[in-house]
Structures are given as C-alpha cells and as structure tokens.
Design a protein around this nucleic acid. Structure first.
Lengths: 307, 307
DNA sequence: ATAATAGTGTCTATAAGACAGTATAAC
DNA sequence: GTTATACTGTCTTATAGACACTATTAT
C-alpha cells in the first residue's frame, strides 16, 4: 500500500514537496488542438442521381503566419482545459454544431519548426458529422471558412525490389470552385527492423493555386487513411448520414471515402452493409424505382476505444 | 500562389511579423513522452515446453509525486526536440536498446490534474522489442527498473439493454514476484450519437500491494487493446521474436498478447501464420519432435502508417 | 510403449467477389 | 416501349473454425 508520508531525499513528504514545488524554467512547447471536420455531400451528375463527395472544413487564416492561406481549424489548449473540451470549444467556435462523433487522430510534433513563431505540438482530432446537422458557420477569428472536397487519387506504385514507393494526388477544391489546392504525395515504405513503415512526403502540384498552412497536408493525408481503414470495421460511416438513408447513399458514401475509381459491386455491398442497418417504412424518390429508407441498427455489435 | 509580402492588419509582412512576435504570456501545459516498452519472455511450465508471457518495463519513481511507486518510463520533451527523438532518448536512457519498433499510442490530456505538480499532457508511445535485443538496464534517473508480466483477464459482461458494461482484471507482477499490482477495469459502452464508445475506469484491487503512478494504468490498458487489435492485421508480433523462431513460439506469443484463456487451435493458427513466414534449415529441440525454425517473410504484403 | 510435441488433411460454415437476373418508378 | 434506378439470387473462391490424423523425438 502506498505510504502517504514517505519522504524524498530532501526529507519532504508529498504534500510538502508539492507546496514547495516551483515549475522549472524549462521552455515549454505550446499545444494546439486541430480539428479535421469531415462531412459528405451530394454531387450533382447530369441525367443521373447524385454521387457523394467527402468534404472537410478549412478556414482562411486572418494573420501571420500563413496569412491568407487555408488551414485546419484549431487553437491553443488552455492550461486548465481537458483536450476533448478544447475540441468541443473549437468546434463550437467554428461551426454551430449540435453533436458530432470525434476521435483523436494523431499528435504532430516531429517537425520542430512546424510553426515559424515557436515550437508547437498539435494534437489532431477527426470529427464526423451529417451535413444537415451543421449550422451555418459563424466566422469567429477566421476571416473565412469553407467546405473543400477532398480527393486522394492513386497515381503510381514502384517497387524497386529494395523499397516500394507509391504516389498519389491529394486535391482540395472549395465548394464554389474558387480555390483549388493540389499536392503530390509520395509514400515510401521504409524498413524499420523487419517491418515496413509508410513515410509520406508532400510536394505542391504545379497548377495548385495555394497551399495549406503549416504541415496541415500531412494531417489531411493521415485522416483520409484513418477514415479508409476505419469504415471497414466500424460503423463511423453512419455518423456522416442523416437518420434515414437509402442503401445507395451508403454505397456512394463508402465510395467517396474509399476514394475508389470505379463503383463497388452493388449486390455485394448491400449484402455486407445490411447487417448494420434496419429497414423502415419510408421511401425516397429517385429517377427510377423508389428506394427503401434504412436506419442504423444500434444493436449491431461494435465497440472501440476513443483513440 | 502564396504572396510572400502580404501584410496583416498591422501592416506587417510575415518576416516583420515574426521578428516582432513575442510568445504570449499564456501558461503552457508541459509535455512528456512516455514509452510503454513491451517484450515477451518464456514462462516455465513443469513437465512441458515453455509458454510465453507479455512483459512491460516499469521504473520505480525516485522523487515525488508518487515516490516509490512504479511508472511508465518517460520524460519531458525538450523545446527543440522532435517527439520521436525524445522517444529514442528516453529508450536509450532506460534500456540500452539497439533497435525497436515503436509507434504513437495516444495523447493523454483529458485529465487536467494527472500530475499534481502542474498540467502535463503526455504523448504515449508503444515500443516492441525481442528480449534478447535489450541490454541490461542502466538505472539512470530511475532508482529501479523491472519487467512486469501483464495480464488482462475477462471477468464479466453485463448488458442491461441500455448499456453494456464489461469488467476485467489487469495484473502486473514483477519478474521476481516481489511486486503485485492489480486493478479492476470497468469498460462502459457509452452512446455518443448513434455509436458506442468504450469508456474505461480503474479501481485498485483489494490485494494490490501498490498502484501505478499517475493515470498510467489507463496507458497500459490502452496499449493492451492496441496490441490485441494490431497483431491481427499487421506483422508487429514478429518484432517481439528473435530472427529464428518456431511456429509454436509464434502461437504462444499470440496467445499471450490476445490474453486468451484456452489455447488457439494449432492447425488453424499455423495455416494463418504461414503466409507471413519462410522456412529455414534450422531446427529447435523440444521435449518432443524437433521443430522447424522460421524467419519473417519480408515480402509479405503489409503497410501502415506510423500512427 | 508412452509422453510430448511437430506437422498435415479435410469437412463445414461463412464471407467475398463476379455476374446475371427481376422489379418499379418516370417519361 | 426506354431509361434509370432498386433489389435479388446464385455460382465460385477464399478464409476460418472444428477436429482427426500422422510424424519424430526422448525416456
């Protein structure tokens, strides 16, 4: 059992130690939480029913550094504020959002000069919400906030025998098509002992009108990969849909997140997804036969850490 | 394209802004990296060939707070130090380790009073190494460092219809059996919108001689779950084995990490694992028929982010 | 021979991919 | 009718679990 009166080398017990404790004069990094807010939205296709596209919220920076460029919304963590409270606060400031699913994505702190002002370690979170749930964006400290369509397109894969290198393009296009940002992503598979780890690097494309602030393109790439993996074994996809939805909508959503070139097989996809949903009485009109509406099946076995 | 001379509301361009920038007087949290170092080791079973057990390194704290209790090794992040460099440094200080696999586990910062001295946000990493690779531990700032066998045992599952609650015991026993630490882990499945998130809480068991420092038991639980998930779809298990190993050893390793009550089916396990390994000429003597030694198959398709 | 372990073969249930079919709406 | 969509059935292949079998060593 723990002894409450145990003394350290200076002869102090824990209470005495804490009363005399002076936080060191060491310089501390600053901490931010950055929030990658994703949603999906319809994309009109002439003569057809709509597709879906993955979108994320970016804000235009109102001051240096990276003044005028787009960035992932975020802000400094207050000294007495829980990380997830900082997330809620940031989300509330940027959107007037009701309820979202969010999870910790990754902490970015390997680049010491991520921010030219000072050392900043950023704890990135990923939030998912149905677009109908998101109230109009109140421009708070950001001078502008916009939805960008996110695409990650496979370009090439090269296996030299020693090392595999895959390349992709990530493009971010604002809803009004005003702003188009594009990167070449190079993913090297670097051996660390016996296993290979994917190490991405980023290069703006020639036509790219702008760049993301800081190293935020790395955040975006990371989140895309996490989403792609996680929709395969968790029900997070349904957090991006309204209460009632058709199976077509679920499939278009999966296709948007998985960044597929050609559609998934309809029959097989439906069979797989049907375990997670329940039929309702509602129908939705289409340009063909009306579709049955479904709801998420809350009894579907799933469980995971908020990590 | 980005305009290098764009001026902010004070009429400064980015260079001028940075030159005049004074970091705010806001109080900053401190950042630590904590490293959960895992290995597996043989467990002697009388009259049989050995089993394997999952072990982790803990250090005895030499000062307040939590003086005399065991903690996950870690330390403060230097202002100009990359997070992964801080990990390497910590590992080097605690063990004299050659090469390890490590990945970011999670950042712990929801508890504002994790550390009674001040606000500390801890970025936890998980490292895996073959025990034969780890040189004797040089007691640096820690007054003692020991290997603890880690077990997470399922106790009960209760589904009230509204909410599911699972309970487990996590036990940590030092190699010399001197120190035995035990917790009751309660995992509630809390609805967040449509999906359920696992929320764990911890209570020391009555017989527990000690407790882990800070909220480190949460780190341990998180790492166990990550390990359990990740050995199913990545080859990280092989980072815990020497270059040559038998299929029995791989199976015992999986059983230790998966915390199974009864052994996995041998034939099925072998079929599954054989895709990841290659046969060698070596043999290993057992108390029965000698076993063929295998190596990890480096051409086995696998890839993942260092996240 | 017996004990202990290594290693294999096969049946079955389930899931995943390919593909072709039928159904119902608008026009 | 045609077009566009919804929805279903079935064949094939791959994988996972159950379980029984054979092989090789030491004692």
């Amino acid at each position: 059992m723990r002894d409450i009166n145990i003394k350290n080398k200076d002869g102090l017990n824990e209470r005495e130690f804490l009363e005399s404790y002076v936080p060191g004069k060491y310089k501390r990094p600053s901490n931010t939480v950055d929030m990658l807010l994703f949603t999906v939205d319809d994309v009109i296709v002439v003569g057809k029913d709509p597709d879906k596209a993955l979108k994320m919220l970016l804000i235009k920076r109102g001051d240096h550094p990276f003044l005028g460029t787009y960035a992932i919304p975020g802000g400094f963590v207050n000294i007495d504020e829980a990380l997830s409270d900082a997330c809620y606060r940031e989300l509330k400031e940027e959107t007037n959002i009701d309820s979202v699913y969010f999870e910790q994505l990754k902490t970015f702190g390997d680049l010491v000069k991520r921010d030219p002002r000072m050392r900043v370690i950023s704890i990135a979170y990923m939030a998912l919400a149905d677009k109908t749930n998101i109230k109009p964006i109140a421009g708070d400290d950001a001078i502008d906030a916009r939805w960008f369509t996110v695409r990650k397109k496979f370009i090439s894969s090269n296996n030299s025998g020693i090392e595999r290198v895959d390349t992709y393009n990530i493009t971010l296009v604002s809803d009004d098509e005003d702003i188009k940002i594009g990167y070449l992503v190079t993913e090297r598979f670097v051996k660390n002992g016996i296993i290979s780890i994917k190490v991405p690097s980023y290069e703006p494309l020639g036509w790219s009108q702008d760049q993301l602030a800081f190293d935020h393109i790395d955040f975006v790439n990371c989140a895309i990969e996490r989403l792609k993996n996680k929709i395969e074994y968790t029900p997070i996809a349904f957090t991006l849909l309204p209460k009632y939805f058709t199976l077509r909508e679920v499939q278009k959503l999966y296709e948007a997140i998985l960044q597929v070139e050609k559609p998934l097989s309809r029959a097989n996809f439906r069979r797989k997804i049907k375990k997670m949903v329940v039929k309702t009485e509602k129908e939705k009109l289409t340009s063909g036969r009306p579709a049955i509406c479904y709801m998420f099946n809350e009894n579907w076995e799933h469980s995971f850490f908020d990590e």
